[in-house]
């Protein structure tokens, strides 16, 4: 029996007395992928932050490879779980190379220096994420898509077993969306990494992930394989709006798009 990458039991998170995540449970096996979907304000980002212990849980258990995340020290946690937030406008005054090398921090001893190994891993990570040619550029001179790939390269340099992406493809043009999706898929196949991704794109969730976790008002509205989302009324119930389904005659894959609301 394998140890689950993440095993979450009855997780509750409240901020300022307001419940943001309510009784969420799920288990995800190593090497598989999970999309987190749901309407705005459903608690998706809060859940991800809680999985990384960037926010404290109010109650419940989160185990990462069998060990409670509260019992990891920060550096150990960073060697297991990598975080890719939306790169957005965050304009840091660092070059790509400096930024990616900084992600080797969890492997540093106290007050020590980066080694040649750290530099090599950072180079590898940049090559993997296809940003090696940007190494000397300042982060704030990059386009949104390029910056997002640099964030992925930096998380990769941590050599994590799980990668958590929070809307990494939002606001990107189609080319960059596809590039980033293909990049995460490639990594998953090459390194056996577990991927958890928050996304607003339902079709991504349907076609690219092994599991889907749908949140609504902080609670689990659906948890299971993507095709289960296609059951009549399910998406409508999650998003409070009608949907239409289209089957691709070539591949048989089903795509969804929002339908018109009844007058």
């Amino acid at each position: 029996m394998t140890v689950a990458a993440y095993a979450v039991e009855h997780l509750n998170v409240a901020l300022d007395g307001r419940k943001i995540v309510e009784d969420v449970s799920f288990t995800i096996e190593p090497g598989t992928s999970m999309a987190v979907i749901g309407p705005n304000g459903a608690g998706k980002s809060t859940l991800v932050k809680c999985l990384l212990r960037l926010l404290p849980a109010t109650s419940g258990r989160v185990r990462l490879f069998g060990k409670e995340i509260a019992r990891y020290n920060r550096r150990a946690l960073a060697r297991v779980a990598g975080y890719v937030p939306q790169a957005g406008e965050g304009n840091m005054p660092f070059t790509v190379e400096e930024f990616v090398l900084m992600a080797r921090y969890p492997y540093l001893g106290a007050f020590s220096h980066f080694t040649d190994t750290d530099r090599r891993v950072a180079q590898d990570a940049m090559a993997h994420a296809d940003v090696a040619s940007l190494a000397k550029r300042m982060l704030y001179t990059l386009s949104g898509g390029e910056r997002q790939k640099v964030y992925i390269a930096a998380a990769l340099a941590q050599r994590p077993l799980v990668m958590l992406l929070d809307e990494a493809t939002a606001f990107l043009d189609y080319r960059h969306q596809v590039e980033i999706l293909e990049l995460t898929e490639k990594l998953r196949h090459e390194t056996g990494m577990t991927v958890i991704a928050v996304t607003h794109d339902l079709n991504q969730g349907l076609t690219r992930y092994d599991h889907v976790l749908a949140l609504k008002e902080g609670a689990v509205a659906y948890w299971g394989p993507p095709r289960g989302l296609l059951e009549a009324g399910r998406l409508e119930q999650i998003y409070d709006t009608p949907f239409r389904f289209h089957e691709d005659p070539g591949t048989g894959a089903v795509y969804v798009m929002p339908g018109e609301r009844q007058p």
């Binding site: 960037l54 920060r74 550096r75 975080y83 937030p85 965050g90 840091m92 005054p93 921090y105 930096a154």
Partner: peptide, 12 residues
Amino acid sequence: SVGEDLAASRGL
């Protein structure tokens, strides 16, 4: 200087 959440996720 790159932000506290990102810093914490890097092990700080």
